[in-house]
Design a protein around this nucleic acid. Structure first.
Length: 501
RNA sequence: GGUCUCGUGGCCGAGUGGCUAGGCAGAGCUCUGCAAAAGCUUGUACAGCGGUUCGAAUCCGCUCGAGACCUCCA
């Protein structure tokens, strides 16, 4: 745990709202739970941002040497359209609309979700449990809460008694809500006859005769409420109290507040030590969301097939773009910002390619000032990441490192003046922070081998033309290729490289 | 209506009491047959008003503006 001692991690804990030193329950191990997607629709880029934020957090902890158990669920039942009695499960609704079995809907969108995660280089969690796989546990905890007097059954449905809970505990600690205000504010819901108080929320819902997703329970056929699945799955795999719980800011209330109430009610202890909430992706200042209809889908982004986009952007460009802001800030999505990100990312990516080809050739007289600067840059990466996962500042350091890499290449810095130990550490750090921590790799070449072969033929022809000083021809080759999105770059000694848009 | 967050230069976006964020775009220069890439130099900023302080983008108050949550949402 040397790295952790040198660069102790500080996290802004949503519970309390302060930046605090992170201390795991068991030294060297971290249990982390993040609310996953409800698989009733395509994931959009706002969803992607959240999973990317926690991907980087898990990656960094692992880079520091922690063993991380990362649990991210799949919500495949129990997500109500609203909290009223007529609330319909999202999966069931989608299935009805599309004339599909609910599990067909779940399968389809789960696979789509995984594909998107793969495209953005978001690593899979250690465990990916689904709500339908934990019906028994959800029934058990509901029974437990009834026995403790914290839940009640009405007409085949079971509700959590928030007012009762609040007598001994504090409902609203995470979100800063005051129960009295919740009682008499907010919009009115249609039918709440079944609930004792409007703040109560469903643990189990009775399935109406036409409802297609249903399981037997002590209260008749029904299906679980939304909040209970996360309580069950997080504590089952991570323990009654675990280190980190993450999710989007919009889940803070009521979802995460309810999770706390359920866990405290059932187990008598606070479930989570550190709550982390990632902020929203906005479009023209407004939250990107399915209900607002301003979502960007990944495939629209890649193809540039969206009214607000002038062209397509690769997933790594988007990843870089998102990591340029802090996870806790809103980030505005626009064509212009993405174009800037594309060029910025190319710079880092080029440097990565260059660095991988450079090897230290034995030292001469070491310049201690340069050596010290390079070592400082490595430390800066750790310091910034340990400071509440500040990817924006870390990227600024990586840009500085990229400049040094170009210095190595151009000879502005002679490698002989750098100790081999420092160089190897620098190389490992740049590659490590780029690829392992931030998950930035070179944009996937979707080009055919044939295309690459043809480009190389043209490069050879152009080389010949240049040797013959036939510049009109060599320029035509270069310009025509540029028109197709292939940028040739002449290096020293006839060396040639190219980038493809 | 209640609770909360935010307002940084042409654009995006870090930063929380004094010390260059960074990227993109712009200007000049170097290198190059010309480009591109790379390097060097460079300008523009902290919504407004008032207060605390030796000193505030950073703390406090007010005003204006934007957004989020209070209903499903990452």
């Amino acid at each position: 745990m040397k790295l952790l001692e040198k660069f102790p991690v500080h996290i802004t804990n949503s519970l309390g709202g302060k930046k605090v030193l992170f201390t795991p329950i068991v030294p060297g191990y971290i249990g982390m739970y993040v609310c996953g997607p409800t698989v009733y629709n395509d994931v959009h880029l706002g969803n992607v941002r959240t999973f990317m934020s926690f991907d980087v957090i898990a990656r960094y902890f692992r880079y520091l040497g922690f063993k991380v158990r990362y649990v991210r669920n799949i919500t495949d039942v129990g997500h109500l359209e609203n909290d009223a009695d007529e609330g319909e499960d999202k999966i069931a609704k989608k299935a009805r609309l599309e004339q599909l079995e609910p599990m067909e809907v779940v399968k389809h969108y789960t696979e789509g979700f995984h594909e998107v995660m793969r495209q953005f280089n978001i690593l899979p969690p250690s465990i990916e449990p689904s709500a339908t796989g934990h019906i028994i546990e959800q029934v058990e905890i509901t029974k437990n809460l009834i026995n403790k007097g914290l839940a009640y059954e009405t007409n085949g449905s079971v509700y959590f008694d928030v007012t009762q809970y609040n007598k001994e505990h504090h409902y609203g600690a995470l979100s800063g809500r005051v129960i009295e205000e919740l009682m008499d504010s907010g919009r009115k819901l249609d039918s709440q006859d079944e609930k004792r108080n409007k703040v109560d929320f469903a643990l189990w819902k009775k399935a109406s005769s036409y409802h297609i997703m249903r399981w037997p329970s002590p209260w008749g056929d029904g299906f679980p409420g939304w909040h209970i699945e996360c309580t069950v799955m997080s504590t089952k795999y991570l323990g009654e109290t675990f280190d980190i719980h993450g999710g989007g800011m919009d889940l803070k209330f009521p979802h995460h507040e309810c999770e706390i109430a359920q866990a405290v009610g059932a187990n008598g202890k606070s479930p989570v030590n550190y709550w982390i909430h990632s902020n929203m992706l906005t479009v023209n200042g407004q939250k990107m969301s399915k209900s607002l209809g301003n979502s960007f889908l990944p495939r629209e982004l890649f193809a540039g097939n969206h009214p607000l986009l002038e062209k397509g952007f690769g997933p790594m460009t988007v990843r870089f773009f998102m990591l340029q802001s802090h996870y806790s800030s809103t980030l505005d999505f626009s064509n212009e910002a993405l174009s800037a990100a594309e060029k910025g990312f190319r710079k880092l990516s080029n440097a990565l390619g260059i660095l991988k080809k450079i090897n230290h050739q034995g030292e001469g007289s070491v310049n201690t000032a340069i050596d010290a600067e390079l070592l400082q840059l490595i430390d800066d990466c750790y310091v910034n990441m340990s400071d509440d996962f500040n990817t924006a500042k870390t990227l600024a350091v990586l840009f500085e490192m990229a400049s040094r890499i170009n210095d190595f290449k151009s000879g502005n810095i002679t490698l002989k003046n750098v100790s081999s130990k420092t160089f190897e550490a620098f190389k490992a750090a740049y590659i490590g922070f780029m690829e392992e921590v931030l998950g930035l790799r070179e944009e996937e070449e979707h080009n055919h081998e044939l295309v690459k072969g043809i480009i190389h033929v043209l490069i050879e022809l152009r080389k010949k033309a240049r040797q013959d000083r036939n510049y009109p021809l060599s320029d035509k080759i270069r310009d025509d290729l540029k028109g197709l999105g292939v940028q040739l770059m002449d290096g020293k000694d006839g060396e040639m490289s190219y980038t493809i848009e």
